[in-house]
Design a protein around this nucleic acid. Structure first.
Lengths: 388, 388
DNA sequence: TCGCGGCATGTTAGCGCTAACCGGCCCGCG
DNA sequence: CGCGGGCCGGTTAGCGCTAACATGCCGCGA
């Protein structure tokens, strides 16, 4: 329906200048200036202007015909074969240009068996960590000429992971990356088909697949040690859900540090990563005046804890020191600014991609990528324990 | 080279030792790839388990041969053609099962011209809004049997949007969704090729493409009105960058509400969405004692403002009321809990997908989706103005 | 002079699938 | 008893590309 475009254009242009009366129903009133300039002179690419029936996109033999060569020579030019005379190459290039020819990746994929697409299965792309990892992967993939196709999981049981991997595989991806923070996901990977290269990010090292991860244990160690060095007798812990590998590893790093320091090891509290959980668990913690330092397994729960402490009329870091994990963008602006452990998700995405590409290209399991080191960021939520 | 599996398992074991003190006790080099132990019974995925030389994946004619029919009949079964006898269908199904046959989507795409893939162009998938939208889109796409392939933008100039659209298009997607919050992106869409259905999310209505969006103006109106109704003489505003459509619309809703109410319209301050900006601008605002209510264009800047107010020794909402926008998961745990405007990103993703699918299937521009209504969430950061 | 090797191109065969057409078979009807 | 018209299913062509081989040409050494 060609006219649709015109109508739409007209309608939007019609918006009265920004000075108009209230009229909230009228969205068009907003800041018109943007498109006005090119309003009349419809853009170069002649979209809606083109005639009703769109000509079939040019294919290789069209180019060949125009250039006076065979379609195969066109293919050679496209793929940079050395056995093409420069003048032939020039003719072909010119013909491609003239026709606006674009190779059809689907046809190419069919014959080569390579789609230049990578699958990513991810659990909750709304969370800061997975979202950032995904972003890092996409960036790195783009640089290497690959596309990313995502399959996110509704729930985190074993079969959903296998199912997602399977869907991706059928779709013809060259390799798969699983952002698999839970133990279940890791285990599921054992049951995944192995005829497609696969790497896991943030999974535990116990599982079959190749893994790239941030060194959670080291992060937890540095957080706990930081608190100990400030003079706290011991450090409490609000952990993440036990089925998350990362939660387990942070827990482990915390515990080992305490043990090595000969400090008492308090019973950890288990949360679900949400501010809500941090708040509720924080209420319990603040009720106990002997608690002077808490290592919280992520920043969101730390935020909840901060609020609980505040409501209890106590102060951070005066009465209680808090360390989080992740370094979300908001952390520096919490009250007080949160001391936390920064994870470089982008770097992780980059490394996992590199690893996957190696597997795809060499055909065999690549050597492991080293763990990405996390970094302790000291801000205002930690200090020496109160002097009684 | 021996089988890579063993190597990797061993390496990952060593790799971690340096990480932290001791004991990840449980690192058994577990089972290796699926199939070693599964005694032949394992259904479906079993093909992967085959020995050394991986057999070529079964194709349609393999199934046909086993079932004693032609490959075309297999195709009919797969595509649910009515003209297949139930018993034939059963034979074919059984053969597919036995062989672990999976249709090759690439071949299908080549012949049908439909890839069942949708492209999403997104700016910063780390931000809460875009990430959630992407998530919503993916979910909805999955339900409709589509895959999502993402192209994220490094920078936000016009050509990068066009470039991303172009890349996606070449990759053979059936349609494209652009999460285009900036004016530039919207304009760029005018120059995008139109031989592929395209819808924009969060773009301004002035531009050519079909648009789905949350009603930003209404959200800003309800926020501002809420503040006015609490008794504030007027409301200040920290806006987002002017090149963001959403920022413009929130600004507009705020301004119109004040004008309608006959309130004075203070000069708005422009931030960049970051907590940092909210903090710095907040410092300026808190210096002026006459400021009693601020509508901030997003929650992160509101967080920065909260901190600025706190540092200035003033109170929220006692001295100053604050309303944010977005309702990020952390907002309820700010100090104080933030009154804000919730946007349903998931719903937006769902609607934009629905619209795109309509365009793809009917071939013509779909009727517009109504704006998604936002919701004011009143929490602890707003109250009546201080009584002097 | 022949022949051989390497270059630049053309020709042919698929990749795995769907679409279109074709051809038996069985049914009912005139 | 002949025949048209559903059913079911087979056969044949491609989709647009790359891989593998075939061809013609040139230059060079024997």
């Amino acid at each position: 329906m060609q006219t649709g475009d015109d109508i739409a254009a007209a309608e939007s242009g019609d918006g009265n200048a920004s000075a108009g009366p209230a009229g909230f129903g009228d969205r068009d009133a907003s800041a018109g200036p943007a498109g006005i300039g090119d309003g009349g002179a419809s853009p170069g690419l002649a979209d809606a202007a083109s005639p009703r029936q769109r000509a079939r996109a040019p294919v290789m033999s069209d180019v060949g015909r125009l250039a006076g060569v065979s379609h195969q020579t066109v293919s050679r030019v496209i793929n940079g074969s050395p056995h093409v005379r420069p003048e032939t190459r020039a003719k072909v290039t010119a013909a491609m240009e003239e026709l606006g020819y674009r190779p059809n990746p689907v046809a190419r994929a069919l014959v080569t068996g390579r789609s230049k697409m990578l699958g990513v299965v991810s659990f909750d792309t709304t969370l800061y960590g997975p979202a950032s990892t995904l972003f890092g992967i996409e960036r790195a993939a783009h640089e290497s000429g690959y596309f990313i196709i995502v399959a996110s999981l509704e729930s985190l049981n074993r079969s959903s992971v296998v199912d997602a991997v399977e869907r991706l595989r059928r779709q013809g991806v060259d390799g798969i990356m699983v952002i698999a923070p839970h133990a279940e996901a890791g285990e599921a990977l054992l049951h995944a088909p192995t005829d497609v290269p696969l790497v896991a990010a943030e999974a535990g090292p116990e599982h079959g697949a190749a893994v790239v991860a941030v060194d959670q244990v080291a992060g937890a160690v540095s957080a706990t040690r930081h608190l100990l060095e400030l003079g706290h007798r011991t450090v409490w812990h609000i952990s993440g859900p036990r089925n998350f590998i990362e939660a387990r590893q942070r827990h482990e790093g915390w515990m080992n540090t305490l043990r090595d320091a000969g400090a008492e090891i308090p019973e950890p509290l288990e949360g679900d990563w949400s501010p809500q959980a941090g708040y509720e668990l924080g209420l319990r913690l603040t009720a106990d005046r002997s608690v002077t330092a808490v290592f919280v397994a992520n920043d969101q729960m730390a935020l909840g804890l901060l609020r609980a402490v505040h409501e209890a009329g106590r102060e951070v870091p005066g009465d209680l020191s808090v360390v989080g994990f992740d370094d979300i963008p908001e952390a520096a602006y919490f009250l007080p600014p949160l001391t936390t452990v920064r994870q470089d998700f982008i770097e992780m995405g980059r490394r996992s991609l590199r690893m996957l590409l190696r597997r795809i290209e060499t055909g065999r399991r690549a050597s492991a990528e080293p763990l990405v080191p996390p970094e302790l960021v000291v801000r205002g939520s930690t200090g020496p324990p109160p002097t009684p």
